[in-house]
Design a protein around this nucleic acid. Structure first.
Lengths: 283, 283
DNA sequence: CTCGTCTTGGAATTATTATTCTATTGTTTT
DNA sequence: AAAACAATAGAATAATAATTCCAAGACGAG
């Protein structure tokens, strides 16, 4: 009988066998299902102390469930802590297109276009979930409040990020807000950004490697105390430094290709929230 | 200066000081904010290996932020893991999926910014799933083949769809393909589209109400037998009529607000598939 | 160019932690 | 009641991991 490799499996195996376990092992079993966090992080000695058994008993427990040693079993408890929010989507999608399975190994999408699409859909769903998890209400509320009371909104984004800036400009204009798109068409971004006053707001979007134009422009407006809302990929980003609000959109480590889906979704949400906030004020 | 005791504090301290850090320490700082899970669970040697620095540098990093040693700092990262595993976190995730279910009923997002974001995330996930389900392998393969053998690619999209067109232009250019963005800056779209020849491909993106400029331009190039790939919302769309390939991105009836997430995801998939196809051909 | 300062690499050392082993205890069987 | 068996405690040992230390390298200032 092979040792369980996932937390769920281990948990149910413990549940199934805990009756036939000896006294000490049962105490460990009960503790394990009740305090999986401790099982994941504490040392053998620490656990032995908490449970009230000898360290060797814990080793025997691990051996009893098929593991080479405690450390091996602990990995299973640790995997629970870092478990991806929803492997369900990935699996569901993988099962639909068999080609998907192949691409899992090398980390990059395989050759078939349908497999590529499956991969992107799955990754983008993951990115959206991460956006949801990691974006605090505080930032959203603050950003909307800033935007609502601003005299004008300047959109700053170049290269890959430009579509987001453009979208925001388009949508904000349709809300009858004064929105300016810094497109670097006529002159540099820095020069255009000089239009922004302290009563305005600048929304800057940039991911690494950060567009130097955008970074420079942000530094300039921050120096003039113009409020900045940053949409970027890390709190270490040069945009984050002087920003009043910083939205962080984590990129998935295993994917070389960066998706615009999450930033777009955030942009849409901001626009609609702002719309609600303005409507509420006018009524 | 006391060392931060919570993950949030540590993270913001790292963000604040990362500029003044030395080369190696900054690399560690970047890794730390990007891979907090690894920081929580791996060993010094393992991290050193992942980051590409010496173990001693990691100790110095911990000392630099006021900790007695690495282990003490690691506790802070671990505290974050157990915080996320608390029931409330899982409830938040569950509530999001609940929001998706609810949205089918009333269709409009609530007032709070966080609720709006949840709504958008849920709806966009739904849109991506629908994209995945409704997009056939045939269309994808045909589109990629068309693009691969084209002499040039013209991107056509205005208003809300322009970000998608721009993105495609940006990404295709980076593949060293001849990509032309019909931006209507100098002259009408129709005039610019006249550049397209029968050996080119036009990718037209438009959703209702269909931008007249784009519709006209598409009709013109179709009449000249230029192959068109349409990304639109209905097979009845004016873009679909003469298109060689038509990607249909369904609108959710009950949702007043249109999201760009699904078209963006499709665009990204097309670009990457095309990239693969070109690489395969060159080898 | 040279000195002084700060940073880094890497082996040596110390510490912590897991694991093993054996004596002991308790329990059941005859 | 004694023998056999199973389970456990606890010290001893092996392993893994963290930390220290010093030499070498990089960078600036004078």
């Amino acid at each position: 009988m092979p040792a369980p490799r996932t937390y769920e499996d281990l948990r149910s195996l413990i549940a199934r066998r805990h009756l036939e376990l000896s006294d000490r092992l049962r105490r460990i079993a009960e503790f394990a299902v009740q305090h999986p966090n401790d099982m994941a992080l504490k040392t053998v000695a620490g656990l032995a102390n908490s449970i009230g058994v000898q360290p060797s008993s814990i080793i025997r427990f691990a051996n009893g469930f098929g593991y080479d040693g405690f450390s091996e079993m602990q990995q299973v408890f640790r995997s629970r802590l870092v478990a991806e929010a929803t492997p369900s989507y990935r699996e569901r999608i993988a099962s639909m297109h068999g080609a998907q399975a192949r691409s899992k190994g090398n980390g990059s999408a395989g050759g078939e276009p349908a497999a590529v699409l499956s991969q992107f859909v799955a990754d983008d769903i993951g990115a959206l979930e991460e956006l949801h998890d990691r974006t605090g209400e505080r930032e959203l509320t603050k950003a909307v409040a800033l935007l609502a009371q601003s005299k004008a909104i300047h959109l700053l984004g170049q290269g890959r990020s430009f579509p987001v800036a453009f979208y925001l400009h388009y949508a904000l204009s349709r809300l009858d807000l004064r929105a300016f798109l810094v497109d670097s068409l006529a002159g540099t971004a820095a020069r255009q950004a000089r239009m922004a006053s302290r009563e305005d707001v600048v929304i800057a979007i940039s991911f690494k490697d950060y567009s130097p134009d955008v970074v420079t422009a942000v530094e300039e407006v921050v120096a003039r105390k113009v409020p900045v809302i940053a949409i970027t990929d890390s709190p270490l980003s040069p945009l984050a430094a002087g920003a009043k609000v910083c939205f962080e959109i984590a990129e998935r480590r295993d994917r070389p290709f960066r998706s615009l889906v999450a930033p777009m979704c955030l942009a849409e949400s901001l626009v609609v929230s702002l719309g609600h906030s303005l409507t509420a004020r006018n009524s």
